[in-house]
């Protein structure tokens, strides 16, 4: 059966740490990083990358358009 694996890339320096992507992710992949970027924001990162399904929900709600989403099919 074809399954999908996803991953996101966050532009850390442009992320404002608003947290909207965190609550939008259906599989709880994203958290705000304990570290901060140059502007002092706790930027979003994939805490649980294995759970990403590449659905792009996080990207859709990001006000600063700093998330790129990737998705590939894998055989299981």
């Amino acid at each position: 059966m074809a399954k999908f694996k996803g991953a996101i890339v966050v532009d850390n320096e442009k992320c404002k740490g608003c947290g909207l992507c965190v609550v939008a992710c259906p599989t709880k992949v994203i958290e705000l990083n304990p570290n901060v970027n140059g502007k002092g924001y706790h930027y979003a990162w994939m805490k649980n990358p294995d759970d990403c399904i590449g659905c792009a929900s996080c990207g859709l709600v990001c006000p600063d358009s700093v998330i790129s989403v990737y998705k590939m099919s894998v055989q299981s």
Binding site: A7, P49, D50, G54, A56, I67, S68, V69, Y70, M72
Partner: peptide, 21 residues
């Protein structure tokens, strides 16, 4: 197990910032 680098290839890109921004 796939590595993140295997997934984040240009051919797998499904969502990105519009170039209009």
């Amino acid at each position: 197990m796939s590595h993140i680098q295997d997934i984040t290839k240009p051919e797998h890109l499904v969502y990105r910032k519009t170039p209009l921004l």
